[in-house]
Design a protein around this nucleic acid. Sequence first.
DNA 1: GCCGTTTTCGGCCCGACTGTTTTCAGTCG
Length: 575
Amino acid sequence: MRNRQVARLLDSIADALEIRGEGRFRTNAYREAARNIENLPGDIEEIWREEKLEDIPGVGKSIASKISQYLESGHSLYLEEISRALPTGLTEILGIPGLGPKKARILHDRLGVSSVEELVAAAQRHEIQKIKGMGAKSEANILKGIERFRQSGKRLLLGEAWPLADQVARMLSECPWISAISPAGSIRRRAETIGDIDVLAASSEPEKAMDAFLSLSIVREVLMKGPTKSSILTGEGLQIDLRVVAPDSYGAALQYFTGSKSHNVELRGIAISKGLKLNEYGLFRIDSGARLAGRNEEEIYEALGLAWMPPELRESRGELEAAAEGRLPDLVEIGDLRGDLHSHTDWSDGRDSLEEMARAAIAHGYQYLAITDHSHSLGVAHGLDARRVREQGEQIESLNKKLAPFKLLHGCEVEILNDGHLDYPDELLASFDLIGASLHLGMGQSSEKITRRILTAFRSRVDILNHPTGRLLNQRPPFEVDLAAVFAAARKRGIALEVNGQPSRLDLKDIDARRARDLGIPLALDTDSHQSGGLDAMRYAVATARRGWVEKKDVINTLDLDQLLQYLGRERKAA
DNA sequence: GCCGTTTTCGGCCCGACTGTTTTCAGTCG
């Protein structure tokens, strides 16, 4: 899968074209194509081999030939050509908030600036304010922007941003001038990482609502302030944007600010084709200006001939077509889950006891919880040897008598060793209720090697492949693995793939979960909890699965206990 | 550069905010 690399290439081309002063429609075409390729459910290399690149929306003859040339050779002649005369530092300058291609170009042409360092020096010598069209304020803002650019590290994880956005919304909901409030943007779509936090409010007194926002205790700096839109920085350097609209426009604005951008562009195209205009204030007839909808999202989609769809779907991945044809998925919900199939206790590297974990699961309304402590080879996690596995099994058995009808399943997270064998012998594996297999060691190996290890492991008894790509958001890329081969083998053997809800994992990721679902591979939504509070992370697994169009029927832990045991083949063994 | 129920040319989402402007360009989302 080189989809992401190709998307990055097209973005780099767009950056270079922008700085060169090419028309924005041309650069937008490259960006549009990049987004579409990033969101592609299929493998770009496969599409390329089948000579179907031009079937991808936004990809025509010219872009297709550049992709072909890149995939063939691993580098882009075109990008090299257009960036030959451009200092590489200029594209870095584009990352500074408030600086776009036009200003970057002017700074380069007039002051010879070609890196962030040179820009700082020019600003400190007060050369920027001498340029026509810029002043002292621009110069100060550039320095401020550079400071933010340097501090702004990684994007926030959904697991960090979602609770924070909810907290902001809760605080503002107490303001008497605000009649409705909701997080919007990528948080509402439950994207895996978040740039800025967007919040939308409805108010008939927008300025008073805005004042309430700007006087929240979390505000460190006001970046921008207007009657309908303000931005602040928190003490941690997070940007929070609040939009305020009239209650009549709340639905239109919520739709608009939830995005995604490409979903909105597509939706607007549909509106235009029907002689309508959609903006954050409502849906209007172009000819008469008459307003057709705007109070809530449902009536907007409906007026466009579409079913309302959950925000998680709004990524321009075929959801509008599905909505028009009435075949939107009936997405899995957190209330559908009957248990969690991946958790750890103080027997290995978890914090809480078997009973504490069981009680937390009961508090979540679950029928079961699989305890899946690490196996022997994962020394750093105090993996269990055969003797301790048996002891743990006995404790689980006696706990189950006490906690019935709730059931702890005795599982394991067994290492896939270097040769692909599992870390426990077959006899021991047979004693578990459930086997989750994981790869924590040798993650830097070649794709061939890692793929072979996983396929070899699948010949043993494996019920679930845990965090199948091993990625850690902001920390570690997924290991090289031929997911198509893993999917094919999982499908053949009926092995479930995990959607791991740890905020730093979310693995499988949304589009991979969707590919698995499309292939009919069962999925397990798990938290990988290492303490009782960790069970709350199920909402991140559910969010990721929903972004992957996953339905209740695709998920094994939506099964009732008896159905799950049947699925795992345990009843057969007991008999 | 892409695209087509205004189809091979002439469009391309569009509104808010800022700064430097006396009417608008640049940036952002």
